[in-house]
Structures are given as C-alpha cells and as structure tokens.
Nucleic acid binder design. Structure first.
Lengths: 197, 197
DNA sequence: ACACCACTGGAACGAACGCTCTATCCGATA
DNA sequence: TATCGGATAGAGCGTTCGTTCCAGTGGTGT
C-alpha cells in the first residue's frame, strides 16, 4: 500500500528510483542518463527498475517529470501562501531559487526543462507530462492573482509571464553561473504585477 | 581561406558540419546527437569531422553553439534596427519567434539552451560559449535601450529580463505547443520597457 | 614529372547503451 | 509448514556510441 508517506529513513525502492531518475535527468538530460546509472544511484538493481517500470526508460522519465512537477508545485504554493503580497512573494521566490541554484553549484535548475527539451519531437508522453507541469504551476499563480482581486484576463496573462520569466531567468542564471538574472527577474515581475492590481 | 562568405550552392564541408551539428543538437541535445548522425546529415564522412574538429564531439559542440549564437544575434539585431520603438521591436520579435517555432512544428527552439543544459556541470568549454552568447544578446538590447535615452542601470537590468523572458517564453511555447506564452511575453516586455523610458 | 598535403572514405576498437531473461529471495497467506 | 507471487539480482543480448587509424584522392607548387 504505502508508497512513501512517512518520513522514513529509507524510502520505497520505487520512490528511490523515481527520485534518482528525476535528479539525474534534471542534471544530465534524458539521453545523458543511463538506466544503470539510475539503478546504482537509487541503490536498486536493473531487475527492480524494469519491475516497477515495464515501459522502460520512457515510462521512468514520465514518472521523474511528475515527481519534479510536484516538487516545484509545493515550493511555489508555499511561497505564495507565506507572503500576502503576491508581487513580493514572487520576488522572494526568485531569490530563493537563486540561492538554491548557487548551493548546487549551478547544476540543479528546473527539474523538468532539461528532460523535456532533449526529447522534444520524439516522446509524446514526456512532452505531455511537462506541459501539464507548466500548466499546474501557472494555475497556482493565476488563482492567487485572482484571489487578490485581479481581473481574469490579467491574471491569466501574468501567470504565463511569471512562469516563463522565472523559467528563463533560472536558465540564464545557470548558464551565467550568477544570481543576477533571477534577482532582476524577481524585481521586474513584482513591478509588472503591481502595475496590474 | 574561404569559410563560406559567398551564397554558394553547396557550402564548405566544415560549414556543413557545423550547421548540421547546430541544428541536431538544438533539437536533440548533446548526448542525443551522434557524431555519425551529424556526418550523415552534413553529407560528410567521419574522417572529415575529425579532420576539422580533432577535439572531437566537445569541440564540435562549441562550434555549433557559436554558430547558433551568431544566428540569433543577427535576428535580434535586425529586429532592433527595423523598428525605432524598442518596446514594439521586442514584441514583434516575440511574435516572429512564435511563428518560427510553429513552422518547425515546435522542435526548433533556442539554438543553444538544449545543448547547454544537457552538459551543465561537465563541459566547461560549452558552458563558456553559451554564457558568451547570452551576454552578447543582452549587450545588443542594453545598447539599444541606452541609445534611446534610458539610464545605464535600467538598461542593464531590462536587457537581462528581456533575454531571460524571451528564453523562458520560447521554452514554454515549445512545451505547450502554443504561441500564447511568446505572445503574452512580448506584450508584457513592451509594457515593462515603456515603463522605464 | 614529381612531391606534397589537405581532405575524404570507411573499417575496426573497446565501452556503454536499453532491454530481456532466468534464478533466487522473502514475507504473507492457507 | 507449504505455497505463491511480488521483489531483487545480475549475466548477457544486440546495437550504437565516440574515437582511432590508415589507405586513398585530387589539386597545387616546383
């Protein structure tokens, strides 16, 4: 029954596999990550991987994307709940992302972009999972903006730009190995939100 | 001497190899693209590839990134020269990018992100080339904003956000297979620029 | 006529890839 | 205690990877 839940010392084998796949594909992309490497990192064996993911590497990648999706969904939700002023919440989140990126020595960017980009025209399941993730994140921002009184249209459009810009700034920060793109993006997004409410 | 220049029917072998590498890595990433595939696509042989790029796949990837860098540099420069109002120039460029992305059936996004992301912590030469590209593009926008009378600080910051947001919106558009993220980003960037000048 | 050399062509190498397969383990149920 | 199926373990399959190596080929300078 259990597929993690408790804060247990050593999680499910399946959970360990998904976590390892998510982390490694986030860093190295789909083609750059081998199934054997995932198994080793997860302290599981090849047999276990194919037992839980009979669909092979693609099915595992989809699970990894869903994992990364939920991971950032929680971060985003907490950031929006923590601070009443949405503009400031987004700016603070950008700084938080910059700190996390720096702490990982600029390797752990968005948990799904690398996997998604590298499989663009050839793995529909992975693309669908990535599109769902982006839509969920946008929905979170849109609902928060709506709740603070913004019009439907403005909230919809701003949610798009907030996610797009955060995504692009994280990418730019990673490439430049600098917090500056994310810092500036946070400032400008806050300004843009304040302009509409 | 000549490494292309003329509008010749069939370009240099070296040029054909770089173009093929750039296009394939843009679509499939570094690890997803094989040297043999590049050679085939370029109508060259393995011997030729290693003749021109004795540094192997990494040296070829660096050349591919420089190629993609220059490619977008020209597009960006023309877009900024074509339209006097910088805000409108950026918005128009976003629409142009959306059309190009759609025309490629959502596979040809930014020519360097996929390659750069997939090699994040392990190929310094590639990272440096990608960082240079981003910096050159930002420089183009910053100079244009400065020329239209914007303050040094505002121009610097806005150039960052313009590139970050365009990058992120292109990514979002690719994943969602929709022009909407780029359209909205263009609108918001124009608004943000107008706000500062 | 010859020598030279940038360039082309492709066979071959060891390593790593995704995946299949069978054997074994082990806790729950009868 | 006997049985059974989910889970684990890893050898081995065919294929492809990046790279090396060397034998040609064709045009240029002498």
């Amino acid at each position: 029954m259990n597929t993690e839940t408790k804060t247990a010392a050593t999680p499910d084998t399946r959970t360990r596999i998904v976590r390892a796949a998510s982390l490694l594909m986030q860093r190295q992309g789909y083609d750059g990550t081998g199934i054997k490497q995932i198994a080793q990192e997860a302290q599981a064996t090849l047999g276990s991987v194919y037992h839980f993911f009979p669909g092979g590497k693609q099915e595992l990648a989809v699970a990894a994307i869903h994992h990364g999706d939920q991971e950032f969904y929680d971060v985003l939700r907490e950031a929006l709940e923590r601070e009443e002023d949405t503009a400031r919440a987004i700016a603070d989140l950008c700084d938080e992302l910059a700190d996390g990126l720096h702490a990982s020595q600029w390797v752990d960017g968005c948990p799904i972009t690398t996997t998604s980009l590298g499989t663009a025209g050839r793995a529909p399941d992975i693309q669908t999972a990535a599109a769902q993730a982006f839509a969920r994140w946008r929905g979170l921002v849109r609902d928060r903006l709506r709740a603070s009184g913004m019009s439907e249209g403005d909230a919809h459009d701003l949610a798009h730009t907030v996610i797009s810009t955060m995504e692009g700034a994280e990418l730019a920060a990673q490439v430049a190995q600098s917090k500056e793109p994310l810092r500036i993006a946070g400032k400008h997004l806050a300004r843009l939100i304040a302009l509409h409410q």
